[in-house]
């Protein structure tokens, strides 16, 4: 059982240093180096600041934020949970670090920083609560060079209909990022949740490892009398599926809602 620590703070900015101290202490105990510890501090600070400024709109005295830290064998996991209105930061577009001074807005960097300093960022709409999981890989931490070029695994998870789970990765599905997605979706399969939608609406590239992962998840979903269907597949990705005949294996729907509805009412 991995070691888990929890902290609950009111949604007030003057409690941010306490949240940072809590996460830094847990990150050090998990064996992260000081640079990675700083990245974890920055990630939790930006996540909590966003909740207080946008979710709770400065009215966080009676609302709380829960922070959970978990040290696993090869990764350090931070989860931040709040009760603000549903807000998935992963669908927001990134600011441009190469923009000129004239074209720059001063703010808007918080979510971008989280995506650059962490290795996996997963947003889950958990029955009305926002849950943001931010993962640092213990092994990769010393190897990171230029953070601007770093690409994290980013996935939005939701549960639109009873027992149906929707996964929307953002960006690329390649050999480096697939194990994280596979792990997330395997966790659901192992919990007996075998009706899965993979929303590819924000995925512009799927490598051969990505395809292999999708087929393997589909097989395992079928083995437990479930299914894995695809939604909102972009043209270029669809071409790749066609070339190797996977468009005949997967059911593909124009939108995630249609995919979820089809899983909810399978044809007799």
């Amino acid at each position: 059982m991995p070691e888990e620590r929890r902290l609950r703070i009111p949604g007030l900015k003057d409690r941010i240093p306490a949240a940072c101290d809590f996460v830094m202490h847990a990150a050090r105990s998990a064996g992260l180096d000081e640079r990675a510890v700083h990245h974890c501090q920055l990630a939790v600070d930006e996540a909590v600041t966003n909740i207080i400024e946008h979710g709770y709109r400065g009215d966080g005295l009676n609302q709380s934020i829960e922070i959970i830290c978990r040290a696993e064998r090869d990764r350090f996991v931070i989860v931040v949970v709040d009760d603000g209105p549903p807000f998935d930061p992963l669908w927001q577009s990134d600011p441009d670090p190469l923009a000129s001074m004239e074209d720059r807005e001063p703010g808007g960097w918080g979510i971008y920083f989280i995506k650059k300093v962490m290795d996996e960022v997963v947003y889950t709409d958990e029955a009305g609560r926002n849950s943001l999981m931010m993962v640092k890989h213990v092994q990769d931490a010393p190897r990171l060079e230029n953070l601007r070029d770093h690409v994290a695994l980013k996935v939005s998870v939701s549960n639109p209909v009873d027992d149906i789970w929707l996964f929307a990765p953002h960006g690329r599905l390649d050999a480096r990022l697939c194990p994280g997605l596979d792990r997330l979706m395997t966790d659901k399969l192992e919990a007996g949740k075998c009706l899965l939608v993979l929303d590819l609406g924000d995925v512009e590239y799927v490598s051969s490892m990505g395809l292999k992962t999708m087929v393997s998840l589909w097989q395992r979903a079928r083995e437990c009398q479930g299914n894995l269907v695809l939604a909102a597949v972009q043209t270029r990705v669809h071409e790749v599926l066609q070339i190797i005949g996977l468009d005949l294996v997967f059911q593909i729907f124009p939108t995630p809602n249609e995919a979820a509805a089809a899983l909810d009412n399978p044809p007799a």
Binding site: C20, H38, Q41, L42, D45, E46, T49, M101, R104, P106, G107, W109, G110, F113
Partner: peptide, 19 residues
């Protein structure tokens, strides 16, 4: 010893105003 994006926001605002 530590600065979040909130600090950058203030610096960029000030830079725009100074220029």
């Amino acid at each position: 010893e530590y600065m979040s994006s909130a600090g950058l926001r203030e610096i960029v605002s000030a830079l725009k105003r100074a220029k």
